[in-house]
Design a protein around this nucleic acid. Structure first.
Length: 543
DNA sequence: CAGTAGGACAAGC
DNA sequence: GCTTGTCCTACTG
């Protein structure tokens, strides 16, 4: 279990690393300064490029790249692990785009920007109260983003490239507002050259400023405080304060980038859940639990986390699994102040893991029955089986993570590394308003090495469309009910497609040729009133 | 100029 | 055989 204040510390660090200016209690200063000396920044006259740049005029699609904290996360957590995994190799590759924080379950956290649960989302993403769950999932690797990862945060960890996504087009039906729109009051900066790659290599700064460090060490982080109060750095680099909330909210835009880690963690969650289910003889679907099974699960989880066993647990929790799943965290805490939060977090993980497996099951059923089949409602819980948890999906992203070139990094932020994998797809489907599920995309197999995947273009497009928060600037629905969508950024979509298929030479010309092949196959068509870059899925390929 | 449309052929599964 | 990638020409706004 991480220290109780780890989430706050971590969030603090992240926010501070981004903003270079914030207000916080002195103890938080201390917590931060223990790991990262901001005194480097104001003295870095040679640093010609700001750490944080908000490019309002960037085009076509500024993106968010966050390397620092997650690199640190990986190095401090993943590499330590005894089992070499794809995540390890991913982490060890230099300068790659970081895997993202875990997606938040839409069902529980509908809108990180607008929801009052925003702070909870932040906690979830950065090892907050959900730490317990992930920490517990198994030994170590599942603590990727669980246990406080950045005690080792140091200058080498801080290399950031931040590009804030522009607002969605006015007509966009993106479900999540852009960071700018969500934080317009918080983010203010002078427009800068769109082509500026903005980052600070603190390694270099560290070397340049060592003499300052050696000769100017002040006690009690006084220097840090002075630096934080000194805004000359911000003025010099056109930096303005960025609210932590806006940064956290903006991460929703890059949620897809974190999917490799999500998948990895989910895989471990599933394995552990699998074992627990077998041990307790309960379903992996919390909604299927009887009250007695709920009690068994609660007691098991309490024991797992070494939390005090409640004597009157049966009285406190009389619900069945379905009702339990609807309880808020507050309700959990009200009933069990000491352990309610952990139980709730763990239950969320189980729900998320089950939703993911359910989604995959639907997808595999779809695949098995042929792609022309009507879509399977993802929300329909599959029958319980002993093999409910899929075991082969989790590492498929890691290959791409490794093979990413720096050039492609920008693409990584624009779309999930594997848009069809992991929980973002499931969550996207689950988040659909009106209860209409999308046609599940065929899951790509875990072995795409060397030859791309077997995914069809139309499926890939639906994947992108299913993640408007991530891909809304590249492709979006015009009329979802009719299956009409528009490719907003043909180049990017084509590159994403090329990456997925391991076709570096892919371009929109070729992609569109494939789309046109769909005309005679009845998969896609141009809209009645033909518009550029606007296509329409034919039935039953949409809806 | 970018996008659209479609023919032709090849490659990979 | 199917799907997709590639290259091509012609056309359109």
């Amino acid at each position: 279990m991480p220290p109780a204040n780890a989430p706050q510390q971590l969030q603090f660090k992240l926010g501070a690393a981004v903003t270079h200016q914030f207000l916080a209690p002195s103890d938080q200063y201390s917590a931060y300064a223990d790991n990262f000396d901001l005194s480097l920044l104001p003295y870095s006259q040679e640093a010609s490029i700001p750490t944080t740049v908000y490019q309002y005029n960037a085009s076509p699609a500024p993106q968010i790249k966050i390397e620092s904290a997650w690199d640190c996360l990986q190095e401090s957590q993943i590499i330590k692990q005894e089992q070499p995994t794809a995540a390890v190799s991913c982490a060890t590759s230099s300068n790659q785009l970081i895997p993202p924080p875990p997606a938040y379950p839409y069902s529980a956290y509908p809108s990180p920007q607008s929801s009052p649960l925003q702070s909870e989302f932040a906690s979830f993403a950065y090892g907050g109260k959900y730490n317990a769950g992930y920490d517990s999932l198994s030994s170590s690797r599942t603590s990727l983003y669980a246990s406080s990862p950045c005690p080792s945060l140091d200058a080498t960890c801080i290399k950031q490239e931040l590009h804030i996504l522009p607002p969605s087009p006015p007509e966009s039906n993106c479900e999540t507002p852009s960071p700018r729109s969500a934080t317009s009051e918080s983010i203010k900066a002078e427009p800068l050259d769109a082509d500026v790659e903005s980052f600070i290599d603190l390694n270099a700064l560290l070397q340049q400023q060592q003499h300052h460090q050696q000769s100017d060490i002040k006690p009690d982080h006084q220097l840090l405080r002075e630096c934080l109060e000194d805004t000359t750095f911000q003025r010099k680099h056109n930096l303005k304060p960025l609210a932590l909330e806006s940064f956290i909210g903006g991460l929703a835009e890059v949620r897809g980038d974190f999917e490799p880690v999500i998948s990895l963690a989910l895989e471990h969650a599933k394995r552990e859940a699998d074992a627990i289910c077998a041990q307790l003889h309960i379903s992996q679907d919390p909604n299927a639990w009887s009250p007695a099974q709920v009690h068994a699960w609660l007691r098991s989880t309490l024991a797992q986390f070494k939390l005090p066993q409640a004597v009157d647990l049966e009285l406190l929790f009389s619900e069945n699994g379905a009702a339990l799943a609807l309880l808020s965290e507050e309700e959990f805490v009200r009933r069990l102040p000491q352990s309610g939060s952990t139980l709730h977090a763990q239950l969320e993980i189980w729900k998320m893991a089950y939703a993911d497996s359910s989604y995959q099951t639907a997808g595999s059923q779809m695949e098995a029955s042929g792609i022309q089949a009507e879509p399977t409602a993802v929300t329909t819980a599959p029958q319980e089986t002993a093999e409910m948890w899929p075991g082969n999906y989790q590492l498929q992203n890691m290959d791409e993570c490794n093979e990413d070139s720096e050039e492609d990094e920008e693409l990584e932020t624009a779309a999930p590394v594997n848009a069809g994998s992991g929980i973002s797809q499931a969550l996207s489907v689950r988040s659909n308003s009106g209860g209409s599920s999308q046609m599940p995309v065929k899951r790509t197999s875990g072995s795409r090495a060397g030859g791309g995947s077997h995914i069809h273009l139309w499926q890939f497009l639906k994947e992108l469309l299913a993640a408007p928060q991530v891909n809304g600037t590249a492709i979006r629905w015009i009329d979802r009910s009719k299956g009409i969508f528009k490719i907003e950024d043909s180049v990017r979509v084509a590159k994403l497609w090329g990456r997925r298929k391991n076709r570096p030479a892919m371009n929109y010309d070729k992609l569109s040729r494939s789309i046109r092949q769909y005309y005679k196959k009845g998969i896609m068509k141009k809209t009645e009133r033909s518009q550029r870059l606007v296509y329409q899925f034919c039935q039953p390929y949409h809806q």
